[in-house]
Amino acid sequence: MIVGWLLAVVLFVSWVGTYLLRQYALSKSLMDVPNERSSHKVPTPRGGGVAIVVSFLLSLPFFNGLGLIADEVLYSLLGAGALVALIGFVDDHGHVPARWRLLGHFVSAAWGLFWLNGLPPITILGAAFDLAWAGNVLAIIYLVWVLNLYNFMDGIDGIASVQAIFVCLGMCINYWLSGNSSLLIIPLGLSVAVAGFLYWNFPPAKIFMGDAGSGFLGMMLGLLAIQAARAAPELMWCWVILTSVFFIDATWTLVTRLINGEKVYQAHCSHAYQHASRAAKSHYKVTMSVLLINVLWLLPISIFVMKGYLDGFWGMVVAWIPLCILAIRFRAGKHV
């Protein structure tokens, strides 16, 4: 009962917080003005993701006080999440040079990983590998990439919010089915925090998430995947599989732009989902299509992996093949 009320408060704080942030952005002219690289056509307030950050991070000490999350998990998520959100907030209100943003992201990742006791042994094709310090380096790079790919993929109405809610609830299902229900509360709380924001961000969006919110979500999802790996190796594969739409689009686009000699740190609109939204002339259709792919394709694969019917590595490969085909079909990384 207490947990239910706490989740309701998280939802309310996020919903009201987003409304207040929208009013603040309008009063301060903090608007995302369309340009040739934009996927929207109407000037829209930005920075609403701060409501996700505040509502979720404030809930963590309460979850900890109820004995639902351990101290080290609390310190990991609070420290890493707050720093990433602060960097994004400052960048949303002005400009932080890319090198300083990246340094802050690596510091955040290292902090979060430290409190989770590093990357546990990972299982690939049935064999366990303890990568020691090299595994921690790879884990930090993974966290920074997940953070930034979430920034890259937050480009049309509702897509980043819908994706975060799906991934969190999908993992709640996997945790419940695998007997790891003790891990449920954090992704459930995060999904509720995002849901309050999504009310205002659903197509047509009344406010955008901004770097503070998108980077924060990427870091949280990455850290939760590493936390899950310590409970059961196959659960980390489930996290990777459920985030596949964003991972494939962002990675394929980045690699394509690198091959073409483009400056990858410059803003662009060449992701597959952006090409798809222009072709469909609708953010709603693309966001809902991503949700359908997630529910009908990626969620069942993740459950097969969690149940042991499919090896995690091969589950990832199966999940990625049609997504790579879609990336080619919608010319990810190419300007059209």
Rank of each mutant, 00 (worst) to 15 (best):
L224C: 14
Y199D: 01
Y199T: 04
N174F: 05
N174M: 11
L188Y: 13
W239R: 05
E234K: 04
F197M: 02
L177T: 13
F246E: 12
F216A: 08
F216V: 07
L221T: 13
M219N: 14
G179Y: 07
A231H: 06
F202R: 15
W200L: 06
L198C: 08
A232N: 08
G213Q: 06
W176E: 05
A193L: 11
R230L: 10
A228V: 01
A229V: 07
M209A: 03
S182P: 00
M209P: 01
F246H: 11
G222S: 12
E234H: 06
P203K: 04
V194N: 06
N180I: 00
G218H: 09
A212P: 05
S181G: 11
L188F: 13
C238A: 15
L217P: 10
L224K: 07
D249Y: 08
N180Y: 08
I241R: 14
I186Q: 13
G213V: 01
L217D: 15
M220L: 15
G210W: 00
A193S: 15
W176C: 01
A205L: 05
W176L: 09
I186G: 10
L183Q: 06
I248N: 14
I207P: 01
S181R: 15
G215D: 01
S191D: 05
G222K: 10
W176Y: 14
V240M: 12
D249T: 05
P187Y: 13
L224M: 15
S178P: 05
N180A: 06
F197Q: 04
V194R: 06
L224E: 12
G189L: 04
W200A: 03
T243V: 06
G215W: 00
R230G: 13
L221Q: 14
